[in-house]
C-alpha cells in the first residue's frame, strides 16, 4: 500500500494542468460555491455545539441557542470537572474499548487475511466461505441478543463493547488483497526453505512490512469503536460500564445522576441539580466526544481514503 499511497499522492499533486480543457470560469465559481456551502453545513453544527457549551445559562434562557451568546461562561466545563469521577470513568471505558478493540481486531483480521492470501493453504476454500457468508446474511437482532446474553454471557461486561465490533469481513478482504498484492511470494518461500515456521514468518516478516495496512485497518476500527453507542444501548445496564457515547445518550437521565454523584461541597442535591447548567453541559459532553476525533481526523484521513479505495478494488 505504501506504493499505492505514493501513486495516489503523485496523482493528486496539481500536475501541470492543461488550462485549455477545463470548465468555464463561471461554472468553476458555481461549483466552488456549492462545495463551500456543503463544507460549511458539515462544520457549522460542530462549531455551534462548541459555542453553546461556552454560553452562559442566562444567555440561553434569554435568547436560546445562538451563535452570538450575550455572555460566555465556563460553568458547563466546571460542572463536568466536578463530575470527573464519573466522566473520567466513561472516558476510561471508551479508551480501553478503543485501544483494546483495535489491538484484538488487528490481530484477528490480519491473521485471517494473511491465511486467505496464501494460495497453497489447504483450508483457504472453506475459510473464504466462512468469511463471505456473514457479508450477505446475518442472524438478526433478536437471536444475536439472546446469544450474547445467554450463550456467550457477555452482557454488562466490557467484552460486549469490544468483541462484536472487532472483525468485519470487509476488513478481512482488504487485508487479503493487500497481502496478495504487496508481499512477494519469494520472500515467504525462502523463509520456509530456511526453516522458519509460518508463525515466525508472519510476525517477523509479514507484519513489519505491512504497517500502512495495519494503520488503515486500525483507524477504521478505532473510529467505529469510539463512536459505538448501540452495544451500550442493547447490552449495558450498569452505569459503571457506560462509555462516553452511552453517557451522552442517557444524558437526560444522567443529569440527575450526575447531580447525585457530584462533589457537592455541602450544598443540597436538589439545589445543586437546579443550579446546573444543563443545556451547556450536554453540549460540552458532545464536545468531549467529538474533540478527540476532530483532533486526530485530519492526520489519518489519508489512511481512511486508501482503505476505502482498496476495499472497493474488485478481484
Amino acid at each position: 500500500m505504501a506504493d499505492t499511497l505514493k501513486k495516489r499522492k503523485a496523482q493528486e499533486e496539481p500536475e501541470v494542468e492543461s488550462k485549455i480543457n477545463r470548465v468555464k470560469p463561471g461554472t468553476n465559481i458555481l461549483f466552488s460555491s456549492i462545495f463551500a456551502i456543503l463544507a460549511l453545513t458539515c462544520i457549522i453544527p460542530a462549531i455551534f455545539i462548541v459555542i453553546i457549551s461556552f454560553s452562559s445559562m442566562e444567555s440561553i434562557n434569554e435568547i436560546g441557542y445562538s451563535f452570538l451568546p450575550k455572555s460566555w461562561s465556563l460553568d458547563a466545563y466546571n460542572y463536568l470537572w466536578n463530575n470527573r469521577i464519573m466522566i473520567g470513568r466513561a472516558f476510561l471505558v471508551s479508551i480501553v474499548v478503543t485501544v483494546g478493540g483495535v489491538l484484538i481486531g488487528l490481530f484477528l483480521t490480519a491473521s485471517m487475511g494473511y491465511a486467505l492470501s496464501r494460495s497453497n493453504y489447504k483450508l483457504k476454500g472453506i475459510y473464504s466461505i466462512i468469511v463471505f457468508i456473514p457479508m450477505v446474511f446475518g442472524g438478526g437482532l433478536v437471536s444475536t441478543y439472546n446469544v450474547y446474553t445467554s450463550v456467550l454471557g457477555i452482557k454488562d461486561t466490557i467484552w460486549v463493547l469490544i468483541l462484536p465490533l472487532v472483525v468485519s469481513s470487509f476488513n478481512v478482504i482488504i487485508c487479503r488483497t493487500f497481502f496478495k498484492t504487496t508481499i512477494p511470494q519469494s520472500i515467504l518461500e525462502s523463509a520456509e526453505i530456511d526453516g522458519a515456521s509460518q508463525l515466525r514468518t508472519y510476525f517477523t516478516i509479514v507484519l513489519p512490512i505491512s504497517k500502512p495496512l495495519l494503520a488503515t485497518i486500525g483507524i477504521l476500527l478505532s473510529f467505529s469503536l469510539w463512536n459505538d453507542w448501540f452495544q451500550s444501548l442493547m447490552y449495558i445496564s450498569d452505569p459503571k460500564m457506560y462509555s462516553l457515547q452511552a453517557v451522552l445518550m442517557n444524558v437526560e437521565k444522567n443529569i440527575e445522576f450526575l447531580a447525585q454523584n457530584a462533589d457537592t461541597m455541602g450544598a443540597s442535591i436538589a439545589a445543586y441539580a437546579t443550579s446546573m447548567p444543563k443545556e451547556p453541559m450536554r453540549m460540552a459532553m458532545a464536545v468531549l466526544i467529538v474533540g478527540p476525533i476532530a483532533c486526530v481526523y485530519p492526520f489519518f484521513q489519508q489512511y481512511f481514503v486508501s482503505g476505502l479505495t482498496i476495499g472497493s478494488v474488485k478481484e
Binding site: 468469511v131 456473514p134 446475518g138 442472524g139 437471536s143 456467550l152 472483525v167 478481512v172
Partner: peptide, 15 residues
C-alpha cells in the same frame, strides 16, 4: 478468528 466467526456470526444465524 474462526472461533470469533463462529461465536459472533454463526451462533446468531443458528438462533
Amino acid at each position: 478468528t474462526v472461533i470469533w466467526y463462529i461465536c459472533f456470526c454463526y451462533f446468531p444465524m443458528f438462533g
